[in-house]
């Protein structure tokens, strides 16, 4: 089944970067993680960032998520420039606009699934009820379980529920299926996919698994800190149709 192509998105970008460069210095060693990234991401769009380990995709995601700042260049979230935002401003930005999903779920072990979601809804401006977020990822019946009592896939879906419960403007996912087998990975991708489709949340998904690009509207390939390919996906698939 072929899904809608990129052309149907409104022109207004959620993210815009201009010549973003990130240099890490550890002692005498200088690592250029990003070398002049120009990228924009539109409302409702799902973009897959593809690249080998060390290509700079996580660094880019961290900068977009307000966890890191560029060494050079500028970053905009809608009309707000994040480049020189203070620590407190970045915290407020993450709190209001960004949902994160990590490879290792990052759940609080002492809180149940519902409580992990409530952790975020308690500090959000217009959240959905934690129960609704968990229903959305198919975990309604398991919401009173602690992370240690859930499978990897379930834990990741809790993480997704936690990320979407605050109705974020963007969802940033760093290797969300990296630690999962195919079947579980597909379930997680399905959850992300439906969030993007039903809520219209702009989504950036990092992976080194090329197969996954086919669920996105657009794929951006990084190598050695540069964008080497940026093109729409014309033959989109449902997550369940993926095989790897």
């Amino acid at each position: 089944m072929i899904l809608q192509p990129e052309a149907s998105f409104p022109a207004r970008p959620v993210f815009r970067t201009e010549g973003v460069t990130r240099v890490y210095r550890t002692g005498a060693v200088e690592v250029r993680a990003l070398r002049g990234i120009d990228l924009s991401l539109r409302e409702g769009e799902m973009v897959v960032l593809l690249g080998a380990s060390g290509s700079g995709k996580s660094t880019l995601l961290n900068i977009l998520g307000g966890l890191d700042r560029p060494t050079e260049g500028r970053v905009f979230f809608r009309d707000t420039e994040l480049t020189h935002a203070t620590e407190a401003e970045l915290t407020a930005y993450r709190r209001a606009h960004v949902g994160f999903v990590f490879q290792f779920y990052n759940l609080v072990p002492s809180l149940t699934a519902r409580e992990n979601v409530a952790l975020v809804t308690e500090i959000a401006a217009r959240p959905m009820p934690p129960e609704e977020a968990l229903e959305r990822v198919g975990l309604g019946p398991r919401m009173n379980h602690f992370p240690a009592e859930l499978s990897g896939g379930e834990q990741q879906r809790v993480a997704i529920a936690r990320a979407i419960a605050k109705r974020p403007d963007v969802l940033l996912c760093d290797e969300p299926t990296g630690a999962l087998d195919i079947a579980t990975g597909a379930q997680v991708l399905e959850a992300l996919h439906s969030v993007n489709r039903d809520l219209g949340t702009a989504t950036v998904l990092i992976t080194h698994n090329a197969v996954i690009q086919r669920i996105a509207h657009r794929v951006v390939v990084l190598a050695d800190g540069r964008i080497v390919r940026d093109e729409p996906v014309t033959d989109r698939l449902q997550p369940a149709e993926l095989t790897w």
Binding site: G65, L67, E87, A88, T91, A92, R94, R95, A96, V98, F100, N106, V108, P109, L119, V120, I123, R162
Partner: peptide, 16 residues
């Protein structure tokens, strides 16, 4: 620290 850093990422302030 991992758990507390996660809270910061989720948008909790330093004080929180």
């Amino acid at each position: 620290s991992y758990e507390l850093a996660t809270l910061r990422v989720l948008g909790f302030s330093r004080r929180e």
